[in-house]
């Protein structure tokens, strides 16, 4: 079982991480590089001859391949990490609650993982362009981790607890972090065009949604396959 869990997560992390990195290079990294132009002051918004217009043009990818290779590598590490948590949760849910597991139900696991780990925290702490000034790090990390745990626990209760009052409690757990609220500053500091930051946020969430769906599918596929052989 241990070997099956670990190997399933590693295969899934490799596949989902590579796929997510590929999508990031098409949709996210160009926006990130463009954001860095504002972070470093190479471009300045709101200040060019008194107009509020800035040229829209992302730097080309490929100037620094060691940097891009690191991005691919760490995507694999991250998705393997999330994959390990997912296969453990899948195995536990099947053992404890009789959840049926297949590549198809893995899609739902992946989407719920996306909701818990990417979408719910993004409500309070949207994915940030480089150069974004935000509240102090530690409180943000605490709210981020707490939101993931609370959302994941809430979704699990909704999925696996039979009784309505428990499911209502699960829903409350999902909503709770947002009523507490994420740590925010009292002022806006935006240095990049708002359109660029918005595009970055939605592109980041969109690619993560694909990565997580693949992760769930592949985790379940290999978990079930490993037991059959």
């Amino acid at each position: 079982m241990t070997k099956n869990l670990l190997s399933s997560a590693v295969f899934a992390g490799l596949i989902a991480g590579l796929f997510a990195a590929l999508l990031q290079f098409v949709f996210v990294i160009p926006l990130l590089l463009e954001g860095e132009l504002y972070e470093t002051g190479a471009r300045v918004h709101f200040a060019i001859e008194g107009t509020t217009q800035s040229i829209k043009e992302a730097p080309a990818i490929g100037a620094d391949w060691s940097r891009h290779l690191m991005t691919i590598g760490f995507n694999i590490v991250t998705y393997t990490g999330y994959g390990l948590l997912m296969v453990a949760a899948m195995g536990f849910a099947r053992e404890r609650f009789g959840a049926t597991l297949s590549a198809k139900t893995g899609l739902i696991w992946g989407l719920c993982g996306f909701i818990a780990v990417q979408l719910a925290p993004a409500l309070g702490l949207p994915p940030e362009l480089p150069g974004t000034i935000a509240a102090e790090l530690t409180p943000r990390q605490i709210w981020w981790s707490g939101t993931i745990l609370s959302t994941a626990a809430g979704l699990a209760i909704i999925a696996f607890a039979g009784e309505l009052w428990k499911q209502v409690f699960g829903l409350a757990l999902v909503l709770l972090p947002h009523f507490i609220g994420a740590p925010h500053l009292d002022t806006y500091y935006g240095i990049a065009p708002p359109e660029l930051a918005a595009e970055f946020t939605t592109a980041s969430l969109g690619t993560a949604a694909v990565g997580w769906t693949i992760l769930g599918y592949v985790c379940a596929y290999f978990l079930v396959r490993g037991e059959d052989t």
Binding site: H68, T78, P121
Partner: peptide
Amino acid sequence: AAHDQRHAMAFP
């Protein structure tokens, strides 16, 4: 090393 990936995956 992890910078771009951390931004893309929205780690705080």
